[in-house]
Design a protein around this nucleic acid. Sequence first.
DNA 1: TCAACTACTCATGAACTGTTGAAACAACCC
DNA 2: GGGTTGTTTCAACAGTTCATGAGTAGTTGA
Lengths: 111, 111
Amino acid sequence: MDRTQALAALSALANETRLDLIRLLVPAGPDGLPAGEIARGLGLSASRLSFHLAAMEGAGLIRSRRASRHVIYAACPGALGALMAYLLRDCCQAHPEVQARCLHPGDGGGD
Amino acid sequence: MDRTQALAALSALANETRLDLIRLLVPAGPDGLPAGEIARGLGLSASRLSFHLAAMEGAGLIRSRRASRHVIYAACPGALGALMAYLLRDCCQAHPEVQARCLHPGDGGGD
DNA sequence: TCAACTACTCATGAACTGTTGAAACAACCC
DNA sequence: GGGTTGTTTCAACAGTTCATGAGTAGTTGA
C-alpha cells in the first residue's frame, strides 16, 4: 500500500457511517451482504448508503458483485490490514510503543 | 479509545500534510521538534503548519509544550497505537486476515 | 523600552463532503 | 408489456476543510 492508497483508505474510514459499514461487513465475511440489508441494518436511505458504499469501494476497502437483482458488498480484510501495516511501518517506522499499544491495548498509561 | 476519539484520529490522519507531520514527529521521540523546525522540514507556511498542528493536537495524536520562545511538538505513540488497536479489535473484531496482513504485510495476495 | 524572533489567530474564498429527494436504471415476475 | 423490487445517479443545498496573507501575542536580549 502506498501513501495515496493509505490516504484514500483513511479518508474513507474517517466517517461514522462508513465505520459502521466496516463493522457490519467484516464479520459477514467474503459472502458479504446485499445493499438493502445493509441499509436496513444501519437505518440509512438507499441513496445515502450508495454514496458511502461507493466511497469505501473507491478506497479499495470493500468490493461488490451483482447477484441477480441484488448487489452484494463484502469487506476486503487484506486492504484493512495493509492500511494498518502502512501506519505501523511506514508512518510510525515500527515504533515499539505504537506497536505494543496496538497489540496489547490494555497495557500502560494513557498517552 | 472510543469511537469519537477514533473518528477524530482518523480524520486527523486523513491528510497528506498531517501524515507527513507524524512521519517527522514519531522518530523525533518524546523530545519532539519546535514548530519552526517542522515548518522548515516540511516546507509549510507558519499559519498552515499551525492549522494542521492544532488538528493533530485536538485529535490527541500529538502534544505541545512551551520552551522559552519555542513551542515543541511531539507525537503521542500511545494514541497512535490505541487507534490501531481500535481499528483491529473494535472495528474488525480481530479478524485473523486483517491482523495477519497488519503484522506481516509482505505475505499473501492482493485483496 | 525597543527590535527581533517565534508562533498563533483571524478573515477570506475555493474546494470538498455529506444529505436529501427525485429520477433513472436493472432484474425479476405476472 | 406492465408492475414491482432493488440499487444507483443526479442536482441542489448546507456545512466543513484547507490555503493564503495580514495582523496579533509572547519571549528574549540590547
